[in-house]
């Protein structure tokens, strides 16, 4: 029986933004900590560690999920995507660009998680309605910016992804 003992680290393998990675983690290690402390991928933020704030949201096999509520080991064999995987080369993605243009972030603490939820919404559904955008955002707290600019940025990004007019 595959028992991972508590006092030792054990290998965990998954792909991170398309690249295979292998880390050693204690059974109790959270995915957030494996990403940030073992791999050094600090784009994923940690706020509450109980699922409420959304700062740690990453994509697991394409679906947004809380990295603070996953044991690192539960990512074994999964495709994990984080904010570091959004831009292509050095250019911001249309979603990131829209956030910049619409002042949809201030301290940026919540932003990585919000981008991962919106990216997961737009990938299968580039013409998502405003209701669906608000629904996706309801799983995130932002303590600085207020949600209006974030919704505007999401609407602008949606139009850009669809190839429509840039302003919502």
């Amino acid at each position: 029986m595959p028992r991972l003992t508590k006092d030792e680290t054990h290998p965990v393998r998954f792909t991170l933004n398309g690249r295979p990675v292998s880390v050693r983690a204690y059974p109790r290690a959270l995915l957030t900590d494996a990403l940030r402390h073992e791999i050094g991928a600090t784009g994923t933020h940690v706020g509450c560690e109980h699922g409420v704030c959304g700062a740690c949201t990453v994509q697991v096999d394409g679906e947004p999920a809380r990295a603070c509520l996953m044991l690192a080991r539960q990512a074994e064999g999964c495709e994990i995507r984080t904010v570091e995987g959004l831009n292509n080369k050095d250019a911001l993605s249309p979603l990131q660009e829209a956030f910049r243009e619409h002042f949809a972030l201030q301290c940026g603490f919540c932003t990585a998680g919000i981008l991962m939820s919106l990216d997961a919404l737009f990938s299968p559904q580039p013409d998502a309605e405003e209701d669906a955008i608000r629904e996706a955002l309801s799983g995130h707290l932002c303590r600085c910016t207020g949600y209006a600019p974030i919704v505007q940025a999401a609407l602008a990004a949606r139009n850009r992804i669809k190839g429509g007019p840039i302003d919502a």
């Binding site: 595959p2 028992r3 508590k6 204690y26 059974p27 109790r28």
Partner: peptide
């Protein structure tokens, strides 16, 4: 905070 240490059994089937 972080969890207290535990063993983790990743069961492959019901009997495990």
């Amino acid at each position: 905070m972080k969890p207290a240490p535990f063993d983790l059994v990743a069961a492959n089937d019901m009997s495990e």
